[in-house]
C-alpha cells in the first residue's frame, strides 16, 4: 500500500491539475462541437449552394480517425492557415472537428423527426422560419437528441487522452510524466485508468438520468 500512497496519493495535486486541463479541453471541444455541428447541419439542410461542402466536411470529420485528425490539425493547419498557434488550441479544435461531424448528423435526424405539420402550423400563425426553428423545432430536437449528445461528450473525454501526445498537459500527460520520473507504472497508470473510467461512467450515468428526467418533464406522448 506504501506505493499507492507515495505514487498516487502524494501526487494528487499534479494529477488533479492534469484532470482540470482534461476538463478544460473537453469543455471547449464540446461547446465548439455543438455550435459547429448545428451550423454544419443547418448549412446542409437549408443552404442549397453550400450543401455539397457541408456534406463533404461532415463525412470527412466522421470518417477520419481522431488521432489522424489531431496530428493533421497540429502539423498541417499552422502551415496552411497560420492557426492554431498552440498545442492546447490544436487539441480541442481537433476534438471539436470530429464531434461536430457526428453531432451534425444527430441534429439532422432530430430535425427530420419533427413532423412537418408543426412547422406549417407555426408558419400559419405568422412565425418566420427562424422563429419556427428556434421555438418549435430546436426545443424538440434538444429533447430527442439529449442522450446522443451526452454520449458524444463521453467520446470527447475518451479521445481527449490523445492530446497528451502533442504535449497538452492533461491527466494522461501528467500520469505518463510521473511514470517517467518514478519508473513505476503499475500504481500510477492503474489509478489514471480508474479515474478516466469512473469519470466517463459518472458522466453517462448522470446524462442518462438527466435525459430521462427531461423526457418525463417535457416529453410528448409515450416517449
Amino acid at each position: 500500500m506504501g506505493n499507492w500512497e507515495r505514487l498516487v496519493w502524494n501526487q494528487r495535486e499534479v494529477l488533479l491539475e492534469g484532470f482540470l486541463v482534461t476538463l478544460h479541453v473537453c469543455a471547449l471541444a464540446f461547446a465548439a462541437a455543438i455550435l459547429g455541428g448545428l451550423a454544419l447541419c443547418l448549412l446542409r439542410m437549408h443552404v442549397r449552394p453550400l450543401r455539397p461542402l457541408a456534406t463533404l466536411l461532415i463525412e470527412f470529420f466522421r470518417a477520419t480517425p481522431i488521432f489522424v485528425q489531431l496530428m493533421w490539425v497540429n502539423y498541417v493547419w499552422p502551415e496552411l492557415f497560420g492557426w492554431p498557434n498552440s498545442f492546447f488550441t490544436a487539441g480541442w479544435v481537433a476534438l471539436a472537428l470530429q464531434s461536430s461531424g457526428y453531432l451534425a448528423e444527430t441534429f439532422r435526424a432530430g430535425i427530420e423527426a419533427v413532423p412537418r405539420g408543426q412547422r406549417e402550423a407555426g408558419e400559419a400563425v405568422g412565425m418566420g422560419p427562424a422563429l419556427v426553428m428556434a421555438r418549435i423545432v430546436l426545443p424538440q430536437v434538444a429533447l430527442t437528441t439529449a442522450p446522443a449528445i451526452v454520449n458524444q461528450f463521453t467520446v470527447i473525454v475518451k479521445s481527449s487522452t490523445l492530446v497528451s501526445v502533442i504535449t497538452v498537459q492533461d491527466l494522461m500527460f501528467q500520469s505518463q510524466k510521473l511514470v517517467n520520473v518514478w519508473y513505476e507504472p503499475i500504481e500510477i497508470l492503474t489509478a489514471t485508468a480508474a479515474i478516466y473510467i469512473a469519470f466517463v461512467f459518472a458522466v453517462s450515468a448522470c446524462g442518462k438520468r438527466l435525459s430521462d428526467a427531461l423526457r418525463r418533464r417535457f416529453g410528448i406522448g409515450s416517449g
Binding site: V157, M172, T192
Partner: peptide, 19 residues
C-alpha cells in the same frame, strides 16, 4: 462491460503494454 466500455482506448493501450 462497464470497465471496458468506459475506458479510453489510449489509456488501455498504455496500461496493457506497461502494466
Amino acid at each position: 462491460v462497464e470497465t471496458f466500455r468506459n475506458a479510453p482506448d489510449y489509456i488501455m493501450l498504455v496500461w496493457v503494454h506497461f502494466v
